[in-house]
Structure formats: C-alpha cells, structure tokens
Write a protein that binds this DNA or RNA. Structure first.
Length: 710
DNA sequence: GACTCGAGTCCCGCC
DNA sequence: GACTCGAGTC
C-alpha cells in the first residue's frame, strides 16, 4: 500500500515543527513510523530521536513497527530478530520511544537530587498515596467527615494536572473543603518529599520544575535528541505541554500528531487548546491533515461522523472511507446478564462461522465494573480473553506485599513499604513494637529503618553487620552513624530481647537480599526471596480455600514472570529499573506484557484504554444514559463540555471498529443491588439520525422512552 | 463510649 | 449490595 499525498507530506517533512491533524483510522501510526524510519535513512542517528506516547501499549506497538520497518527496508537482520524477542537485536541502536511518565522518570533519576529528593526516589501508587493522605489528614486533625482521603487525593490530582502547586492555592473563593484540601495538599507534598517519594502527577510536575529551575539540566536533557515526536497531542496537560516546549525549543524539530475529536482526557487536565494553538507556539509550523480513513467501512464512518457533529466546538472535518460493509447494529437486551451472554454468544458464532480469530474482537465499555459479567461468560464459553485496565492486580495484598519487599530492598528508607512488611509474614514484631519504632524515628527525626538498624546493632553480634553497607552511599553512612548514638541510647532499651532478635533477623534478611539483588537482579533471586520469607506459608495461613490459595500464589508467579521478562528486555536490568517499569506499566504488566499482545484473545477494555487501537469487530456495551454518557458528566456544572467529552469517547469507540460494529444496551440493569430500568443513551439517537425523535429529548432528561424507536 | 440500626451514598476514565 | 455516618440507646 502506498502513501496518499497528505501522508507523504507528513512523512517527508523531516525538519522543523509539524502538526499532523490525523482523524481516526487515517494511517497515523503508519505515518509516524514511516517518518521515523525516513529520518533514520536520511542519516539521523536512531538514538537522537525521541517519540513520546501516552500509553505503554502504544509505545510498544510503535517500537515493534519501527523495528519491523527498519528490518525490512535496510536489511537489518539484528533489528528484525529483536522484534520476535531475540537477544541479538537489543544491542542495536534504537530510537527512544516512551511514555511521558517513563521519560520523566528517567530524567528525574538523573537530576532529582537538585530538587532535594533522593536519587532513588520511590514512585507512589494509589495505595501508597492513600496511606499518606490518611496520615496527613490525621496530622492536621481533620475528621474524616470533612474530607476523606480519596476526596483529598482527587483534588490534589486535579490541581497537579493543572500544574498548580500548593502555593498557587490561596483563592479567596475557596469553599471550606477546598481550603482544607489545599492545606492538606501542602502537607501531603511535604510528607512525600520527606519520604523521598513522588506520586504519578509529580513525575511531570517535578520534571517541569527541574527544567525551570535548572537550565543546565534542561540543556543536558534536550541535548540528547535532535527530533521529538509527540503522539496524541490533544491529550497533553499543562506540564506535558511545557516539557515538550522545553525539550524541542532548541532544535525545533517537533512533530505532534493528534485529533481534537479524540480528546478524552480533559478530566486529568488535558487541554485541546494545545493542539489548536500549535501554530501560535511554532509559527513556522507546517500543518498536514489526514482525512482519508483506511480502517473502517463507510457505514461505520457515517455513524462516527454523525455523532461527533453534535459537538459544537470542534474543527470542521469529515472522515471519508471507501470500504463498503454491513451497517452497524444496535442490540437491545433484557438485562445486563443477557447483554453479556448475547455478546459472547455472537462472538462464539463468528469464531465458528467465519475466519475471524479471537484477537480480531474487542468489547469496549465505559467503566471498569462492567466487564465482570462478560468475564464470566467468556470463561463459560471457553473463549480466551484479555482484560486490560483496572489496577486490580496491584491491589492484591500478596502483590503489594512482595513489591513492598522490593521497594525496601531498593531503598530501606522507604517508610510506607517498610512498615508494610516489617511484620508480614508475622515474625514477632507486633503492633506495640512498631509503635515504639515509629516514636523513636519521630523523636530522633530519622527514618524507621535507621531506628531498626540502631536497635539491632546494640550488643555484640558477630556476623550481623553484613554486606548491606556496601551499597550505601557515604552520606547515608554518615547519617547512620549519627543516628545510631541518639536513637540507640534513647529508645532501643524499650524493646524486648525477643523483638530485637526478630528485628535482627529481619535486618539481616534485608541486607542479604539487598546485596544479592544489587549484584544481580534476576527472577531466580526474586522467587528465592519469596520462598525465604515464607510467603507460601502465609498464604496458606490466611486463606482456607484451596482455590484462593492457588490464585494468590499464581499472582506471585506473575510477579516473578514479569521480573524475568524485564531482565530479558533490558541491557542492564536492576531492581530500580524493574520497580520503575512495573509501577508505570499499570495493569498491562500483570498479564505478562508482550506475550499477551501476541496472545490470540478477545480484548476487553475501557473506551479510554482503546484509544489508538483497532479491531475488526467491536462491541460497545452499556449504551445507556448514566453509563455513556456517564452520570458524573451529567451532574457537572459545566454540563455541556463534560457531555461533549463523553461524546468524543463514544466517537473513539466507534472508530476502533474496522468491519463490524455492534452497540448493545440493556433495558434493565442491576444497580446498587436492585434491577433498575435504564434509558437508552442519547448517542444512540444521534448516531442513527433520530435526534428529532421525541425519545431523544426524554433520554436527555433522563426519562424512559415512551414511543417505539426503530 | 460502644453498640445497633436505618438512611443515604455510590471513589468514572489512566500513567 | 456494601459501606459509612449519625442518631438513638444502654
């Protein structure tokens, strides 16, 4: 297949700022990958090219395609081999393709000490954040009624996404809750810093701050690349926008790709204005529009075009397709269960009667609770499926525990992690002892780990001062020595000899594996560690049900697998890198990374996660008011723009489908324990050109339809 | 202050 | 359905 004129223009514009307005399915990925390989052919060193995507999945996909392309064109055998997991290819120089977050992690690892954080900063996930939030609220004596941890985190995240730091928050119009939250935000930020931790939003915020306050760091980082490419530019938030500007400011070889109709991340601070104002920021920018759709049938595109025109504020454009196919369908089911059964049964039939494979199908939904019913049906029908999204894997206790171990091994001063594992599995360090350790750490203002060390070093213990110190920095040892005297003298006496013994063996365990893992990070050492701490016994102790035991044990197996995959994929694997990778990978790591994408299975995912992907056959389930559009968007004050974003979400869903699209809804759905009647989504009327139908108004008003629809 | 009980609410989406 | 919160009770 050759490139059309617009695509060619985008591919061949090799220098200077370039804006590619690419509608859904217009060969954006192709253009991007061709352009990168053209750059390389024209003599640009691969390692001087940086491409930034939004998701890991997108990054991996791009990496694979470029490797294939280069292998095919340049006869580069090594590169080709690496595409199917070979070892030879990985030494080959590659363009850097990463998500914003992993890019920022790498930058911060090199420079964050300038901002007063330790180089081995921890990245806190939702669970860690929550425990910090809880602590903060306790400290400022807010009763839980006034502000809940979740509520606080939600506000903090919003502020951070808008690049607002605590000092920007003294708006006199603030209500009591916002005022409290702003207060807590300040404290929260301070606490994280003390703990040497950052949350996801900080990754962007701190990188931006770094560039602002330390031009030399910016110069170094910007100087690594001569070409910058940003995918899904419509979804950049303030920090990302500034980071891009900073990085590309000098060489100005910036290519951004996006589509304002697919802006679906407004809720995390994304600003469509960034893509709309690109030419203002880069006056010499070239603009290329891609409108020829190669993915979907004419009938599917017709639906997409129809629904999106209901958004008032957008760039006028109209996708075109020349592929002919069958009209999309809308299925009404009795209830949620029937809906799941119907979808699965239809996929089964398609698998049996056509040449389609499981990987050609996707079921898309709005929220993460929707797939439950589907999963059951897929399992019953024995159709392989992959559930993407939801943080559930990292929410599992056993996974969190093992990662807490790894975090402590990486940096013993990681307080949250240390407190989690100190007595997990139980080793005789009870609540009251932990309390004492905490008090000592507070009183001496040192970390809990320092207290543990001081407490265990009392008396003579030949052989207990193990190798751990080898990996400490000089500064850390100095602190440590100061700590020992104060802490030890004051508090260690409070602990019982039994507790001290337990602490001692805990410490030598940590020291031992710290040394082992820093010398050689491997999956074997990890599973040895799991064995050593007796986690198997812990699972048996906690769960009576043999089924549960084996699933829990298996999820630890997944962690070990992930470690093996990580080691396999990286030239210089280390614990830090593994932790970075996994904390950024989110859910897609749980199922074994690359292997899953190669696995032939039906994909189940949210509409958000589906952006940028395509499938021959797509099912969009739960097309009801309250679901899509989601009720939260209906309640918002800025009503219109919130619903517009839901509509774009619907548009994204529709345009994922190549050949066959099915929208389903249930007439009745279990909600909060009771079956409730539903209202068909307003988008269904818009899509089918029935916006004059009386039921359309009813749907918008949230009322049941009164007259028969088509 | 520890408890029961009923009323009211419903943490969207992701790295 | 599950969970929290606050009123009411002992």
């Amino acid at each position: 297949m050759s490139l059309n004129p617009a695509q060619t223009a985008a591919v061949e514009t090799l220098s200077g700022p370039l804006l590619v307005l690419a509608g859904a399915g217009t060969g954006k990925t192709r253009v991007v990958t061709y352009r990168i390989s053209r750059l390389i052919q024209s003599g640009v060193r691969p390692s001087r090219i940086l491409a930034v995507t939004f998701t890991n999945k997108a990054a991996r996909e791009m990496q694979t395609r470029i490797t294939e392309l280069l292998g095919r064109r340049g006869g580069n055998h090594a590169a080709k081999k690496s595409a199917d997991g070979g070892v030879d290819g990985k030494r080959k120089e590659k363009p850097e393709i990463s998500t914003f977050h992993s890019l920022c992690v790498r930058i911060l690892r090199r420079h964050i000490t300038r901002l007063g954080y330790p180089a081995r900063f921890a990245i806190y996930d939702r669970g860690d954040q929550e425990s910090v939030a809880r602590q903060v609220l306790k400290e400022i004596k807010v009763n839980t009624g006034a502000l809940k941890p979740g509520d606080l985190l939600y506000r903090i995240s919003r502020w951070k996404c808008e690049a607002k730091r605590p000092e920007h928050l003294d708006d006199p119009r603030f209500g009591a809750k916002d005022y409290l939250a702003a207060l807590a935000y300040r404290r929260y930020q301070k606490t994280l810093k003390t703990l040497g931790a950052v949350d996801f939003d900080d990754l962007l915020l701190l990188t931006e701050e770094l560039f602002q306050r330390h031009p030399e760091a910016l110069e170094e980082e910007a100087g690594r690349f001569d070409h910058l490419l940003v995918d899904e530019y419509q979804d950049t938030n303030m920090s990302q926008y500034r980071i891009v500007k900073d990085l590309a400011g000098k060489h100005r070889n910036l290519c951004v790709v996006g589509d304002d109709d697919q802006a679906i991340y407004g809720w995390r601070g994304a600003e469509v204005t960034h893509i709309l104002g690109f030419q203002k920021d880069w006056p010499e920018a070239k603009v290329v529009r891609l409108e020829e759709n190669y993915r979907s049938t004419r009938q599917i595109i017709e639906w997409a075009n129809r629904v999106i025109t209901f958004n008032a504020t957008r760039h006028a454009k109209r996708l075109r397709s020349t592929i002919d196919g069958e009209p999309p369908r809308i299925l009404q089911c009795k209830d949620g269960e029937t809906e799941a059964k119907t979808v699965v049964r239809q996929i089964k039939t398609r698998l049996e009667t056509t040449k389609r494979q499981p990987k050609d199908f996707a079921v898309l939904f709005r929220t993460n609770e929707q797939p439950r019913a589907l999963e059951m049906e897929f399992r019953a029908a024995k159709i392989p499926y992959t559930l993407i999204g939801g943080q559930s894997f990292f929410d599992r206790k056993e996974v969190r525990d093992i990662f807490a171990y790894l975090k402590v091994l990486n940096r013993p001063r990681d307080e949250v992690a240390l407190l989690r594992i100190l007595n997990t599995p139980p080793r005789g360090i009870g609540q009251s002892s932990v309390q004492k350790l905490l008090e000592s750490s507070l009183a001496a203002s040192v970390s809990v780990w320092d207290v543990v060390k001081a407490a265990t070093e009392r008396g003579d213990f030949p052989g207990s001062a193990v190798a751990g110190t080898a990996v400490e920095t000089a500064a850390e040892t100095a602190v440590e020595r100061a700590v020992e005297t104060t802490v030890e003298a004051r508090y260690a006496a409070d602990l019982s000899p039994k507790t001290i013994g337990a602490l001692r063996s805990f410490r030598s365990l940590i020291d031992e594996y710290r040394e082992k893992l820093s010398r050689n990070f491997s999956a074997e050492t990890l599973s040895e560690l799991i064995e050593r701490i007796g986690y198997r016994g812990e699972i048996d102790r906690l769960y009576a049900d043999p089924n549960e035991r084996s699933t829990r044990w298996e999820s630890l197996g997944e962690v070990v697998n992930a470690a093996a995959a990580y080691v396999n994929e990286n030239e210089q694997p280390d614990l830090q890198g593994f932790l970075d990778d996994t904390s950024l990978a989110g859910s897609d790591f749980a199922s074994g990374k690359e292997k899953t994408s190669a696995k032939n299975s039906v994909t189940l995912m949210t509409l958000h996660a589906a952006k940028g992907l395509e499938f021959l056959e797509v099912y969009m389930v739960g097309m009801e008011e309250g679901m899509l559009p989601h009720h939260r968007s209906l309640a918002a004050e800025d009503d219109v723009s919130a619903v517009d974003e839901e509509r774009r979400l619907c548009y994204v869903g529709i345009t994922r489908a190549g050949r066959r699209l099915t929208l389903t809804m249930a007439l009745e759905r279990m909600k909060w324990g009771k079956p409730r009647p539903t209202v068909p989504s307003r988008f269904l009327y818009e899509i089918t050109g029935q916006s004059r139908h009386p039921n359309y108004r009813k749907a918008i008003a949230g009322e049941a339809p009164t007259e028969p629809t088509r």
